[in-house]
């Protein structure tokens, strides 16, 4: 069966109606729903299309899905300087409650790419999903912060983007198009995820960006790994404004989510 695309329902929800989401109803009554946690920053914009494709695939397979934007990102209220790690976790809890209400399903799964995967893993304790599927999640915040800093430094002197290299001051406090508050930066730098007590499936691109020690800790706690046949250009300056598209990911993630727990 094919989900009707015009059935996708855009909405605002949350305590102050400040969170934006799009609900994808299933084609038939469902028993499990999927909450799609978005990445942050430019990863969010680049993977927008892919998230929509995944949500449509899930709805067509009979699993309702909710995509949403964290406070300070996308169409949700707030500025990018308002984004905080703990607020992202609270937003995920609110989105899970909204999805349970919209779908009538008590059982839900979480999916997330990059920082969206990290949020899904960290929010599991509160949301209590049946499973978490994380695609190339950020498991070690200090490494991630260092890589984005280096990318930002390369960006400002990229004379294919700018007529002339820009000063460090002009690019300070930002990561690839988004102003980052010092508190979020600190929260991410200190990020070290503990394995959740629910079932975890890692989807890794062919050249994983996850460091092995953190990955091993998850696997030692029962996480299983699915490896894609190709790499994903998450942190490449040349592809910063090119959409992340992966039919293999959509097929793989929707397949894993359809499996019985």
């Amino acid at each position: 069966m094919i989900a009707r695309l015009d059935a996708e329902r855009p909405l605002f929800f949350g305590a102050d109606q400040g969170l934006f989401g799009i609900y994808h109803p299933p084609v038939a009554p469902a028993t499990q729903a999927v909450l799609l946690c978005p990445p942050l920053g430019q990863d969010h914009i680049r993977s927008h299309r892919l998230y929509r494709q995944l949500a449509n695939a899930l709805a067509a397979a009979g699993m309702p899905a909710l995509r949403f934007d964290f406070h300070g990102s996308g169409d949700s209220a707030g500025d990018s300087t308002d984004i905080r790690w703990d607020r992202c976790l609270a937003d995920t809890t609110a989105a899970a409650a909204e999805l349970r209400q919209l779908s009538g399903c008590d059982r839900i799964a979480l999916f997330g790419a990059r920082l969206g995967g990290s949020v899904a893993l960290a929010a599991a304790a509160n949301v209590k999903p049946d499973r978490v599927i994380a695609w190339d999640p950020v498991l070690n915040g200090a490494d991630y912060v260092a890589r984005l800093d280096a990318l930002q430094d390369s960006l400002r002197i990229d004379t294919r983007r700018f007529d002339q290299a820009r000063t460090a001051e002009a690019a300070a406090g930002q990561w690839q198009g988004f102003t980052i508050d010092a508190r979020l930066r600190q929260q991410l730098a200190e990020l070290q995820l503990e394995p959740p007590s629910t079932q975890v499936r890692l989807i890794e691109s062919a050249l994983p960006v996850t460091t092995s020690a953190d990955r091993q800790r998850l696997i030692a706690n029962g996480a299983t790994v699915t490896t894609l046949s190709s790499s994903t250009p998450w942190e490449e300056l040349d592809r910063l404004e090119i959409a992340i598209i992966s039919h293999e990911l959509v097929q793989s993630a929707s397949g894993l989510l359809r499996e019985a727990t």
Partner: peptide, 12 residues
Amino acid sequence: LVHRIGPFRLHV
């Protein structure tokens, strides 16, 4: 192809 929020959320 950027969705309605615009490049780096410019439209917002």
